[in-house]
């Protein structure tokens, strides 16, 4: 399974880094990325990828195809049409 990707939406809050069971979250100059060779999407560890489960920002983590793991509105509960641009 292809690794997950951290996008420009990341706010560098560090929530994901300590809970990744594979130590796949790499941080350099406050820029976070997921090491694609280490990421297993938490298979065998949890039902869903842990970074995705704790990330507070919609669209900050995508799959390899670029689809948001937490799409707009799913974390804040704000309806899509009301989400500020």
């Amino acid at each position: 399974m292809l690794a997950l990707i951290i996008t420009v939406e990341c706010i560098a809050c560090w929530a994901c880094e300590p809970i990744c069971p594979n130590g796949a979250i790499r941080v350099k100059n406050e820029i976070f990325r997921i090491d694609k060779n280490s990421c297993t999407r938490c298979e065998g560890h949890a039902d869903l990828p842990q970074c995705v489960e704790i990330c507070p920002v919609e669209g900050a983590i995508t799959d390899a195809e670029g689809s948001a793991m937490n799409p707009p509105g799913t974390l804040t509960g704000i309806p899509r049409e009301k989400i500020p641009a």
């Binding site: 990341c10 820029i31 990325r33």
Partner: peptide, 17 residues
């Protein structure tokens, strides 16, 4: 100076953490 292809959180560039 972003690393090749890396997305830059502007948060990092402009002041937050």
């Amino acid at each position: 100076q972003a690393r090749e292809g890396a997305a830059i959180p502007m948060a990092a560039a402009v002041g937050m953490q």
